[in-house]
Amino acid sequence: MEPVLELDRVSKHFPGHKAVDQLNLTLLDGEFFCLLGPSGCGKTTTLRLIAGFEEPTDGEIRLRGQAISRLKPYQRNINTVFQSYALFPHLTVRANIEFGMRYRGNPARNALEKTVEMLQLGDKIDRLPAQLSGGERQRVALARSLVLEPDVLLLDEPLSALDPNLRKQVRGELKDLQRRTGITFLFITHDQEEALSMSDRLAVMNQGKIEQTGTPQDVYLKPSTRFAATFLGPMNWVNSTGIRPESTRVAPAPPGDDVRTMPAQVEDSIFLGNCVHVKARLVTGEPFVAEVPRTMPRFMPGDRVHLWWEPSDELHLPPQ
C-alpha cells in the first residue's frame, strides 16, 4: 500500500509548551488509523496541523508526496469531522452537505444522492441541524466530508458526544463506512477500546511524541514502552516485568515448575458478570489483579493463593 500522508519530524511549539515534538507518522492509503493518547498529549494539535488550522513550527507534512505544511485548509484535499460536528446551524442538511461541493473539482453527478443514501439521511434532508438527534448530526458531519472524497478524513473524537449505548453501535458503522468508501481515516481518540476495535493500525501518543505504532494486536501484545502497555489496558508490574490480568491465573497450591509463580494474599474478589477480578497483594507488597473465569471457585479476602502465568505472557519493559 502507498503512503498517503506523511508527517516528517513535525513539531508544534506553543509558548512554554511543546505540543507536538519531532513527530513521525505515515498513513497508508485506505487504512483506518487511530491516534490514541490521553488528553493533552498533542493528538488534537496533530490533527489541526494536518487539517491546516495550525502551521508546524518545524518539519514537513506531505500528502501524496506533495508538501502541504504551508497550504491553507481550503487548499488541502483533507476534511475534518469535528468533535462538536460544527454543522452550519442556518443551513439545512442538504445545504450542509452541498457546502463544499462547489469548491472541489467536479464531484460525480450523483455524489450527493449516493452519500445521503449511504448515511441514511434521505428523510432528514430538509431539516435544520437543531432538529436532528446527536447520531443524525454526526452522520451529516460525515456526509458533508465524505461527499468530497478527501485523500484523508480526520475524525476528532467524534463518538464522545454520543450517549454510551449508541457509541458501541456507531463504532461498527464507522468501520463499515470506511471499508465501503475506501477513504483513509485518521481517528483521534483517548479510548483504547475504540482504538483497538476499529483501527487497522494505531499509534500511541504521549507528551507530543509517538510511543509506538502497529496493529492493535502488536501494540496490545508487544508494547514497546511502559506507557503504551498501561494505556492500552491494565497491567500488573513486578519490577520490570508486566503481566496482563487476563494472563494471570490463581491457584490454591503451587502449580508445576514450567510456569512463573508468586505467593499472594487475596484482598478482594469482584464479580463482573462475564468474569471475576481477584485483587491480591504479593508477599513482596505489589498489588496484583487476576481476571479469572466466573466458573472458578470463589476466592475470599484473606485466602493465601499462588498467582501464576506462562513465561511467554511476560513483557519486559524497564521503567523510563
Binding site: A51, G52, F53, K72, P73, Y74, I78, N79, T80, F82, S84, A86, L87, F88, P89, F99, G100, R102, Y103, R104, R144, S145, L148
Partner: peptide, 23 residues
C-alpha cells in the same frame, strides 16, 4: 459564532471571503 464553524467552512474548501459571505 462558534470558531469551529469558520474552521469547518475553510476545511470544506471555502476561501475566507466565501466563509464571510456564507457563514
Amino acid at each position: 459564532i462558534d470558531s469551529n464553524l469558520l474552521e469547518a467552512s475553510s476545511d470544506l474548501g471555502a476561501h475566507p471571503w466565501q466563509t464571510l459571505k456564507r457563514v
